[in-house]
């Protein structure tokens, strides 16, 4: 029998963690985006009525299913031992964010499926008649719709927060060791959801609603980003070194240009101009928000892996 003892002297961990490539940031982005879509969908259901077919909320569960599946595929590709993923479902570890995440994802799927089955589109029911039978098997009273909405909002918040907690719980990486990551990822996910809804909205009232919502979320996201950096700058020597990664280090330009400039400030300005009627609604701003959200996950994952407690 061979026994391997792993200590901190592991080339994958010290001095820099480099076990996560593109798959994890992509998954975190898609997960946050789906969280935003779920919350928007849940908010629509609080009136106790199904979304109208011309409403932007109508396709959100279907789109959420597609995006989440893409994210799960990215997560699956990242796994070294793919079948070990099943072990996450044989127990629940309250102190493990990964265990929370695995179970949250398991709840999110049925909620999205229920949302999708509220009123399946004709193009799908003609091809798959069982969808109609499945949809009719549930009697959707206003109270049940409101309940589904509440569950969707709760799942969205849990999913959005979990993507941030997953990183911030890894205290061995100073850049991630901040309680602000959870609200930052939640707000960024919500912003991505609102931006996407703005992008696909056909009704002008919904377009205005989504622009207003996204503008407020972008303002909050900007404040959280600045607080995250300020919190690190105001910390000890290792936190200051972690902050230096985005203040003068190798991730400075990508953080301030792609994440803050292109992903938050520019769309914020463009949308403020659109709200005041100075420019027409353009797909540019929501596309920038989505690109910025993706860049945010990449920068945070890279910066966290590069930061360490070995001062100097």
């Amino acid at each position: 029998m061979f026994e391997t003892i792993t200590t901190r002297a592991n080339h994958l961990v010290d001095p820099h963690l480099h076990v996560w490539a593109w798959q994890i940031p992509l998954y975190l982005f898609l997960g946050g985006w789906v969280a935003g879509l779920l919350i928007l969908f849940g908010l629509k259901l609080r009136r106790g009525a199904r979304p109208a077919r011309d409403s932007v909320t109508y396709p959100l569960p279907w789109i959420g299913l597609g995006l989440l599946s893409l994210g799960m595929l990215a997560l699956f590709l990242d796994l070294e031992h793919k079948l070990h993923a099943l072990r996450l479902y044989v127990s629940f570890e309250p102190s493990s964010p990964m265990s929370w995440g695995a179970w949250i994802l398991l709840i999110v799927y049925p909620v999205l499926v229920l949302g999708a089955l509220l009123d399946p589109p004709g193009a799908l029911t003609r091809r798959f008649p069982w969808l109609t039978r499945a949809a009719r098997s549930i009697r959707w009273t206003p109270d049940r719709l409101r309940l589904l909405g509440l569950v969707a909002i709760a799942c969205g918040i849990l999913l959005g927060v979990y993507t941030g907690v997953l990183l911030s719980s890894l205290g061995a990486r100073p850049f991630w060791s901040s309680g602000l990551l959870a609200p930052l990822f939640l707000v960024s996910g919500l912003s991505a959801g609102a931006a996407f809804a703005h992008l696909i909205a056909r009704r002008s009232d919904e377009q205005r609603q989504m622009v207003l919502l996204d503008t407020r979320l972008l303002a909050v996201e900007l404040a959280l980003l600045l607080l995250l950096v300020l919190g690190l700058v105001g910390g000890g020597a290792v936190q200051k070194e972690a902050a230096a990664l985005v203040l003068r280090g190798p991730l400075t330009a990508i953080f301030w240009v792609l994440v803050v400039g292109v992903g938050v400030v520019l769309p914020l300005v463009v949308q403020l101009l659109a709200i005041r009627g100075r420019v027409h609604h353009q797909p540019v701003a929501p596309l920038l928000v989505l690109g910025g959200g993706l860049a945010l996950r990449f920068v945070i994952v890279w910066a966290g892996q590069a930061s360490h407690w070995l001062h100097g």
């Binding site: 003068r248 280090g249 190798p250 400075t252 330009a253 301030w256 240009v257 400039g261």
Partner: peptide
Amino acid sequence: AFGDEVGLIWAFV
């Protein structure tokens, strides 16, 4: 006064 990375931020602005 600043390096390559901050130079790129000025270029963006």
